[in-house]
Design a binder for these strands. Structure first.
Length: 271
DNA sequence: ACGAATGTTGCGGG
DNA sequence: ACCCGCAACATTCG
């Protein structure tokens, strides 16, 4: 269930394995239709067969495979995993890419929410997706300006991928705890200092999480079943009924935007 | 045993 | 604009 750091970790681990490969074909061994969005497996093959992988990168939570002509974009959603030349069980395979010399890439996805797109360019994605929180353009000033007129609660706004692209439930809870902001606070009510702390928290937490190769709760793996190690660095996410690591009060779990939300009522006072 | 919850997103309705 | 409920799906937990 990857967010930005997990997606970046997958991209980093696949880079050396995929660049330079020639695509022979893509198969869907279990016949799932929704994986390719609106395209049929036949059309998808027509688009990508014989093409060469030039680069692989991340945009928001999307994995972008740049071909010599066109792009494959992959969203892992909740349980998607990409396995290069690893043994696998057929049961939950959404797709299998075949490359030269019997190399292959498996898209394993228990819940089948994951999607694979083909497009000539990335304009559809760039139009749909917001700022990357690790880009230089994501500044305190930018964030303050953008939050100053928004009437939504901050957590639901941070969830909005057309606003900021890459945050999800874990890193939102962590960022709000770090900056001592209550998730239900209306965005425009945040002070300049709140926004400064929030901005710092987001950037620092994401960078650190990438350094630790993401968070594995249950399903996130990359490479040969490697887990992310940021789980042990979490301050609030998943710590319901445990002590706050800053003030020692008890962490509470509530529901915000239909998602489990972990807060310290003592540290994160609602405005 | 069965309902709830899981790291995501998209859509329809008010 | 913004919020909510639900849907897509499988598995695990209490």
């Amino acid at each position: 269930m990857p967010e930005l750091p997990e997606v970046q970790t997958v991209v980093n681990s696949l880079k050396n394995k995929l660049i330079g490969r020639t695509i022979i074909s893509i198969e869907n061994p279990n016949g799932y239709l929704n994986v390719f969005h609106k395209l049929s497996i036949k059309d998808f093959n027509n688009y990508i067969t014989t093409k060469i992988i030039k680069n692989i990168k991340r945009i928001g939570k999307y994995i972008i495979i740049e071909l010599n002509d066109g792009f494959i974009s992959i969203h892992l959603r909740m349980t998607g995993k990409l396995l290069f030349n690893e043994s696998y069980k057929k049961k939950h395979i959404s797709a299998k890419f075949l490359f030269e010399k019997n190399n292959y890439l498996i898209f394993d996805d228990v819940r089948k929410f994951g999607r694979i797109y083909y497009s000539e360019n990335l304009s559809w994605l760039n139009e749909k997706i917001g700022i990357d929180p690790l880009s230089v353009n994501f500044s305190q000033e930018w964030l303050h300006k953008k939050l100053s007129y928004r009437k939504r609660m901050i957590k639901s706004l941070l969830f909005d991928q057309s606003f900021i692209a890459g945050l999800g439930n874990i890193y939102i809870d962590e960022s709000l705890w770090k900056s001592k902001i209550h998730p239900l606070t209306i965005a425009s009510k945040l002070s300049k200092n709140d926004v400064k702390k929030l901005h710092n928290a987001i950037v620092n937490i994401l960078k650190k999480a990438i350094k630790f190769q993401g968070t594995t709760i249950i399903n996130f793996y990359f490479d040969k079943n490697k887990k992310g190690n940021y789980g042990e660095k979490l301050y609030v996410y998943g710590r319901n009924n445990m002590n706050c690591l800053r003030c020692n009060e008890i962490i509470t779990k509530i529901v915000v935007s239909q998602r489990g939300t972990h807060i310290c009522y003592n540290c994160q006072k609602q405005k």
